[in-house]
Design a protein around this nucleic acid. Structure first.
Length: 381
DNA sequence: TATACCGGGCTCTGCCATCCCG
DNA sequence: CGGGATGGCAGAGCCCGGTATA
């Protein structure tokens, strides 16, 4: 109670720039016992946190509909700044077609946005727009990922990235894909991107590849998120996958830019965990080690499936009488959602569909093709 | 003409830790 | 030493349809 009262008093005082005086008085008054000292330190902490906040900035933001609590939690320092550009940011984004809610949401999620000058915004937006073609497209990305757009103030670095990525043979269309889907690539230091590219080129060469340039290009185009991963993660996954799948160098190189490209950037512990549980499950069904290796290298996407999801699907399929060999031969059945599997197998059980004779391909068809097929099956009965 | 094969579409931020500079 | 800049992490599938092929 005492604490709360003091806090509200001090907060009031902060507003009137008489904080230091009050802190001295109250801390003196409270320092008699340790209990008091505890509250005193709480109080000082609290004051420290909010004392330097720029009240006029706060009220500006409030008027703009910014979630102050969220902003404070994310970047408390920004609320203390004396010079900010929230008004020009608002005008700028508005001129690009952003709604009031969008602007507020952007600032709430990434308060540092208000430290960028109008000139800076103009310049960077232009560059993004050149790549993405339309303001609307840029706005979409900025709204989705304000951090990618606002985190760095270094325009030279942005340009360096564009030059570098283009030098790899990536086309304007590729760059547009990259910026749209993995915008952080462009706020990475160019040096960091170079490190990843170097790593991939070295990898290609060490596996006996002859065109590292082309290899890197393919990997980036096929896995657009690769440049926002750490080389550490990539290295760990590559090492794990090569030793697990036991592929020859050349074969492995081919695999990386083909089937395997999507799983390269999975969280390393995740890929290991999923691999382990998938292996265990398949062994329990009577698969041989070789079969399992072949299965996973031909269809690595199953490593994407969480342990539970994988096991649930396998269990479900085997319970309704589908043989493990059928699953191995048609792994795509595992990418069908469990709900779709349930719906379809229920439909099919009603017409006594025999998976042994007619296969399980029907479970994997697209919705329209499935309906057509089902209709034909029903009519022919 | 039905099925198999295959590539591609969607999509990935928001948080924390650490570095680095004034 | 504070704060801006930057790096890195966890999280975790499903669907469609063009074209080859039999």
């Amino acid at each position: 109670m005492v604490w709360k009262e003091l806090l509200s008093t001090t907060t009031f005082c902060v507003h009137h720039s008489r904080t230091s005086c009050l802190i001295r008085i109250s801390s003196h008054a409270l320092s008699k016992t340790s209990w008091h000292r505890f509250y005193c330190s709480q109080l000082l902490d609290q004051i420290k946190k909010t004392s330097a906040e720029n009240q006029s900035l706060l009220s500006n933001l409030e008027i703009m509909g910014v979630d102050i609590k969220m902003a404070r939690k994310r970047q408390p320092g920004i609320l203390k700044k004396m010079i900010t550009h929230e008004e020009s940011l608002r005008k700028f984004l508005q001129s690009k077609g952003a709604s009031k809610e969008t602007i507020a949401s952007i600032i709430s999620r990434y308060p540092r946005a208000i430290t960028r000058t109008y000139e800076h915004l103009l310049e960077k937006w232009d560059i993004w727009q050149t790549i993405l073609k339309t303001d609307l497209q840029v706005l979409k990305i900025v709204e989705r990922s304000p951090e990618s757009f606002f985190r760095s103030g270094d325009i030279d670095n942005l340009e360096e990235n564009i030059t570098f990525l283009s030098s790899l043979g990536l086309t304007p269309k590729d760059l547009s894909q990259l910026l749209a889907k993995a915008p952080r690539t462009f706020s990475n230091r160019a040096e960091l991107n170079k490190q990843m590219v170097d790593f991939l080129q070295d990898l290609c060469i060490s596996l006996g590849g002859e065109s590292p340039q082309e290899f890197v290009k393919q990997v980036i185009i096929k896995n657009i998120f690769i440049l926002i991963r750490s080389t550490k993660r990539l290295k760990a996954n590559i090492e794990f996958l090569q030793s697990t799948l036991k592929l020859e160098d050349k074969e492995f190189l081919f695999w990386i830019q083909g089937n395997g490209v999507d799983v390269l950037d999975l969280c390393n512990t995740y890929i290991k965990r999923n691999h382990k549980s998938a292996q265990k499950k398949l062994l329990s069904l009577g698969c041989s080690e070789v079969e399992i290796r072949r299965f996973i290298s031909s269809y690595p996407s199953i490593l994407y499936l969480s342990t539970k999801n994988f096991i649930d699907k396998i269990d479900f399929l085997t319970e309704i009488g589908i043989a493990k060999d059928q699953i191995l031969e048609n792994p795509r059945v595992l990418e069908v959602s469990i709900d779709t599997l349930k719906i379809r197998t229920k439909d099919l059980s009603e017409i006594d569909y025999d998976y042994q004779s007619f296969g399980i391909g029907i479970l994997v068809l697209s919705q329209t093709r499935y309906r057509d097929k089902l209709e034909k099956l029903c009519n022919s009965r």
